[in-house]
Design a protein around this nucleic acid. Structure first.
Lengths: 144, 144
DNA sequence: TAAAAACCAAGTGTTTTACTAGGCTTTTTG
DNA sequence: CAAAAAGCCTAGTAAAACACTTGGTTTTTA
């Protein structure tokens, strides 16, 4: 039961983007890569994918980069994770023909209730919450 | 974010085992395999592993097989899943050196709270709950 | 017009998954 | 006591998923 690094990277990168993004000036992947140590090539791939679900917009050309498409407190962690990883089903059977083997799935109930809890939790945390945490951490680091 | 078939198979097989197990006579993997359509070789591997965590016991020899080590209502789904899959961390970073890259993990909070909810949910369902569901399903199928 | 950025398709090495093969050991029963 | 039926064990393997990388093209701005 794992979230792949894809989702984790997306989340980290967006926290950083949200923090850095000031006055509608886009943040480049090069900069995000430098700060987060995630390879730029991988970020490119990831952001083009994320963009499809509409949580970021891009600006091409020099001085271009990415911007959050919505205020950070309107973007949930769930939004981000599914935008990066696609639907997060717990087991393969849940959403397809993998389960045909058995006409009545004995364990469906389990995956469904666990999945419900996860989505609820992930939807209750917004990107803004994490950005605030990040700001606090930076402040503390300065003082000490 | 997936539970592998390993965990799903374990759960299915144990529901079946719990249902079939009468008066301390062990149930063979051959029989479980036949009924669940899970390959017997795979079940062997799986059950030997599961056995280590003590939720089943085995009996060798002819007429041998497996038995639940505890009453089904004392075994939770969580118990079963970790016995089959090992610790279910949501992201790799959570439990090791994967996260060293960044001295403070921005997203730790997310994985932790989601993980807490999952374990709570999975711990709230017992094997017996699923066995009862199974019995009900069988009854209904008979009537119709 | 050159640099810097996003865009894009395709390739690649590694790891994990899901399973299989083939043999050994223990117990029961005819 | 021998044969059958069960679990026990190690190792191998094909396929998929993962985590990237390569090598370009296009767009924008200074």
């Amino acid at each position: 039961m794992r979230i792949s690094t894809r989702g984790k990277y997306a989340l980290e990168a967006l926290v950083f983007l949200g923090y850095e993004q000031k006055a509608d000036s886009p943040v480049s992947l090069g900069y995000i890569s430098e700060k987060t140590q995630i390879s730029e090539g991988y970020l490119e791939q990831l952001f083009r994918f994320i963009k499809k679900s509409g949580i970021v917009v891009s600006q091409k050309g020099k001085c271009g980069g990415y911007l959050l498409a919505k205020p950070a407190d309107k973007i949930t962690i769930y939004d981000i994770l599914i935008s990066a990883e696609g639907p997060l089903s717990l087991v393969r059977c849940a959403d397809s023909e993998y389960c045909k083997r058995q006409d009545k799935c004995l364990t469906h109930k389990v995956w469904e209730s666990a999945y419900g809890k996860i989505t609820k939790t992930l939807n209750s945390i917004t990107l803004d919450d994490l950005i605030c945490d990040y700001q606090l951490k930076l402040k503390k680091a300065k003082i000490s």
